[in-house]
């Protein structure tokens, strides 16, 4: 009975893993194919069914018919990393304030302010395209890294606020009060007493920021021209009248890699009990 249960369990896990891994393997294999191996029906095994070629990979570094994605890649790293960090810092501070202090302006209360932040994500991004474009042009920041970082901070901060407000709300207020009585200043209280307790929240919020920032195409596309390209835009630029599946696959692999590593590290962190005792 137990053996049967185990067998079924492993079978299910194996099937699901195959289901998840297959697109990645297909991407990997396609990235080494030539045009004939892609358009002439499905081919599976390298060397037997098709002759592997590095053409797809060369195209990523400015090879024939390709686009050099090294600089856009670094741009994406800088923009996503910086914007996520800033959004996380500002968002966490804002969330702490919203969780601990009462604000009111006319009929507006804390809940409304929190909703205001979240509503930025409900709104379709296209609504913001023209205002952002005009604002960046006015600032002279179109097609520049600082301009993009500014816009991404605005886009990512709602996520950080949203996640962190909930986490701060689970921390009893008595903890702040106790620290004050112990003679702590509000800033020390926040950094030394409260922050260590919301570490899981910071990890989750940071991960969301990185994922959304890294994957964004819309703002990267509308607010840049040629000088400052981000990865998603340059990958689209690989496209031509004949879809180059091989180089697109190679590009997809390198652009997914950092998020895969991130997911792996976060999963390890959560599983290792890095958060033990942080939650009641």
């Amino acid at each position: 009975m137990r053996t049967l249960y185990l067998a079924l369990k492993y079978l299910a896990v194996t099937l699901w893993s195959a289901f998840v891994i297959f697109p990645f393997l297909w991407m990997l294999s396609t990235s080494f194919k030539t045009q004939n191996a892609v358009t002439g029906g499905a081919t599976w095994l390298p060397w037997l069914q098709f002759e592997p070629s590095l053409a797809g990979w060369r195209a990523l570094f400015g090879g024939a018919g390709g686009v050099n994605i090294v600089k856009p890649y670094l741009n994406s790293v800088v923009v996503t990393g910086t914007a996520s960090a800033i959004a996380l810092v500002l968002g966490t501070l804002a969330a702490y304030g919203l969780s601990r202090f009462s604000f009111r302006a006319g009929p507006i209360r804390n809940g409304d302010i929190t909703f205001f932040f979240i509503s930025q994500r409900i709104m379709p991004p296209i609504v913001l395209a023209i205002p952002f474009f005009l604002m960046l042009r006015w600032l002279g920041l179109l097609d520049s890294l600082p301009g993009l970082i500014l816009v991404y901070v605005a886009a990512l901060m709602p996520i950080a606020v949203w996640v962190m407000v909930d986490f701060f709300n689970t921390i009893p207020r008595a903890l702040d009060e106790m620290a004050w009585m112990d003679g702590c200043t509000p800033v020390t209280t926040f950094i030394r007493v409260i922050l260590p307790n919301v570490l899981p929240g910071l990890v989750v919020a940071g991960m969301f920021c990185l994922i959304f920032g890294w994957n964004d195409f819309f703002f990267a596309f509308t607010l840049t021209f040629t000088k400052t390209q981000l990865l998603p835009v340059s990958i689209v630029a690989l496209n031509s009248s004949v879809t180059p599946w091989w180089s697109l696959s190679a590009a997809a692999i390198v652009s997914v890699a950092p998020l895969a590593v991130l997911a792996f590290v976060v999963e390890r962190f959560l599983a290792s009990g890095g958060l033990k005792g942080a939650v009641r």
Partner: peptide
């Protein structure tokens, strides 16, 4: 005078400790 300068200690109903320490 603000709380931090009053040198008061308090034991709360629900045990509160700095759980990260």
């Amino acid at each position: 005078l603000e709380t931090g300068r009053r040198k008061i200690a308090q034991v709360f109903q629900v045990p509160v400790i700095y759980r990260s320490m």
